[in-house]
């Protein structure tokens, strides 16, 4: 029940932020145009945060998510801008795009498996293993591209980031699909239940016969795949891939996850809480943007927001404990 209450509280915060921003920006925030543009913007961070949540549920962290996303984007870029002939016919382009997407997902899967292997089998703490792999991946991406951006993706591919299905922007639908799949995976599958158990008490999980190593491998592979999906959306929206794109997303994703009720020590967190958290941060930054606040003021409020939420949680837990 405690989980339900904290989600309710989070929802309340999101609504309050939404109302404040609507009042501060009369006639601008509460428009279809703004809501639509927010629906294009938040999915990148949202998908990355979902990946971060998976890593944090087991008590770990994944600092390599954005590096994986960029690596996947760059490989896609090489396929779609260098390998594909300039005068390719339409159906040929579709084939190349499909191939590029497949390679991108595979990149995520393999990178995630490497992380999982280093963490579960070699025994390196997650924060260091993923710090190392993120440096290696970014490094390789820089070596491949010499640090330049890879621009000029085909029109069909860009549709993933810039077009709508009925009234819904495709990035939003991609986020929704990831969230729904994860929701069922975490709540209903044995994999999900075991992942929560590992995060709650790893020793007990080992003794109760859970194959901890294999679950950890799977969870980091899942994070890797989510990272590559985020990479696809990012590339399709900006029409370019670069080795150091979006590096600030790493810490923002941790922030979103913690805000959404994910316990950094593992074992707690839900897709719904995380989705509300990423939405409230999007309301904040879009609203501030309209008020012509600088990006730095937004950075400041995000930090304060995180500290505030942790403070509120602390005093609430204290009250619950003392009332028992």
């Amino acid at each position: 029940m405690a989980a339900d209450r904290s989600i309710l509280q989070l929802l309340l915060i999101a609504i309050v932020v939404f109302i404040i921003m609507a009042l501060l920006n009369p006639g601008k925030f509460l428009t279809l145009l703004n809501i639509e543009s927010m629906a294009y913007q938040f999915p990148e961070l949202g998908i990355i945060s979902l990946g971060m949540m998976i890593a944090m549920l087991s008590g770990g962290i994944d600092l390599s998510i954005v590096s994986i996303a960029n690596m996947a984007s760059i490989l896609m870029g090489l396929i779609l801008t260098k390998m594909m002939p300039q005068n390719a016919a339409n159906n040929q382009i579709v084939l190349f795009v499909a191939f590029a997407l497949l390679i991108s997902l595979l990149t995520g899967l393999i990178s995630g498996l490497i992380n999982g292997f280093l963490i579960a089998h070699v025994g390196i703490p997650a924060i260091l293993a993923t710090l190392g792999t993120s440096q290696i991946l970014t490094g390789i991406a820089i070596v491949i591209t010499k640090g330049y951006a890879v621009p000029g993706f085909p029109e069909i591919f860009l549709k993933i980031g810039n077009s709508k299905l009925f009234i819904f922007p495709i990035p939003f639908l991609v986020f929704l699909a990831c969230a729904i799949v994860l929701f069922f995976l975490l709540q209903k599958s044995s994999f999900g239940i075991r992942l929560y158990l590992i995060g709650t008490n790893i020793k007990a999980s080992v003794f109760s016969g859970i194959k901890v190593k294999s679950i950890l491998m799977k969870s980091y592979a899942l994070t890797g795949v989510l990272a590559s999906i985020a990479g696809i959306v990012m590339t399709a929206r900006t029409n370019s891939a670069k080795a150091d794109y979006g590096s600030s997303y790493v810490l923002q994703a941790v922030l979103v996850a913690v805000l959404g009720g994910v316990n950094p020590a593992g074992g707690f967190g839900s897709v719904i809480g995380l989705s509300i958290a990423v939405l409230s941060l999007q309301f904040l930054s879009s609203g501030f943007n309209m008020l012509r606040f600088s990006n730095f003021a937004t950075e400041f409020t995000w930090g304060m927001f995180l500290l505030l939420i942790m403070g509120i949680n602390y005093f609430q837990n204290k009250r619950i404990k003392s009332s028992k």
Partner: peptide, 26 residues
Amino acid sequence: FVAGMKLPALIVSLGTSSAIRGFMLA
């Protein structure tokens, strides 16, 4: 935050680092 509220420093410092840097730049 770390001593008073028994929170993990990694997460606290995530918050303080963006708050401090954001405050300075803004």
